[in-house]
Write a protein that binds this DNA or RNA. Sequence first.
DNA 1: GTCTATACTGAGATAGAC
DNA 2: GTCTATCTCAGTATAGAC
Lengths: 207, 207
Amino acid sequence: MIDDLNRMTDTKQKILDTAERLFGEQGYAATSLRQVIAAAEVNVAAVHYHFGSKEDLLDAVVTRKAGPVTVARMERLDRLEAETKPVDVERVLEAFLLPTAEMAEHHPTFVRLMGRMLTEGMMPRIVEKHFQESAMRFIAALMRALPHLGREELMWRVHFMIGAMAHTLTGQPVMHMVDASTDFPTRVRRLVKFLGAAFRAPAEEKN
Amino acid sequence: MIDDLNRMTDTKQKILDTAERLFGEQGYAATSLRQVIAAAEVNVAAVHYHFGSKEDLLDAVVTRKAGPVTVARMERLDRLEAETKPVDVERVLEAFLLPTAEMAEHHPTFVRLMGRMLTEGMMPRIVEKHFQESAMRFIAALMRALPHLGREELMWRVHFMIGAMAHTLTGQPVMHMVDASTDFPTRVRRLVKFLGAAFRAPAEEKN
DNA sequence: GTCTATACTGAGATAGAC
DNA sequence: GTCTATCTCAGTATAGAC
């Protein structure tokens, strides 16, 4: 019974681990299931038996690890808002970004995949399903920290931030500009400073 | 003779136009050549006859329109640096970003593709080939505008900026946060304000 | 319940007829 | 310069062995 469970989770887990890594490194569309099953050393049909389809496999990969990030984000936001107001923008940004840096310590391949999912634009349903809750909560906290910004202006700034964040998480420097081996806490520290100043920029006169 | 030339460029151009659009909308890896040839209403072998491979097709698509953007960026930077120093950061950012907004007016599909190329992480050679020159020039101008920043800090900020820019150019809002129909000049205006404040953030104490 | 063998369709790529 | 045929590998589906 325990052996059965172990064997089952063994195959499933090998597929999940390999898919997480390859989807993150190469992108979802650019990664073939046959690459995955070859690297995981399992049979072609195993993916469809355990997960159903390529898209469902991605969903399973994300489901496995997205929860803790969301929980950590929520907890940080809760603690932050329980303390004092006005809340500082950079603390809100940290509440959103530091959980990914912590996750990156033990699960760097998953963090890379998180970045990919935001930029590759594929599977919008999966992104929404797993990250919309904490994102909405984060936006609400930002609104309270930046009451002078209109909703549209704030949303655009969050949009810019997601681009910067995703590009940083994927760890793929364009044109060798940055050191690809820089650890994630350092990246996030720099990013928070950068975005903090950006969010505090005065709103436009007209809009 | 003229008819022959017209027919030739007709087929090539139909393929280039269609590939530019589909690569930009769906991503490079997610777009099959068979989608391209079906939408362009040409034969399967036409792509390989005219361009050689899928990657070479992408290169041809970029080659066709990247030049004017680079030229416009260079000219703006030249004019800017000929005027006065110290140069304002936001003017440097505009020199880099406004040419894409102008390009977007008549070639929105190409601008979307430019964004995709930066985030999808595929074809790093093609990105370098077409955009490294103006990027290096732009970084040099930024360094002069922000002499207090160390090289590494500046490079990371440029990295963040490229993420924000790419995500904005692709026009794919994550989780319906922003209005996807917002015109590019407006996006760029907001982005320049956002990034201007971000680049002017004080450098870290230790690094 | 789990895994394997096999087959079907559609992808990128190439060779050769016209 | 164009089209057909064909090759290999992709994602997917199913039947049946263990």
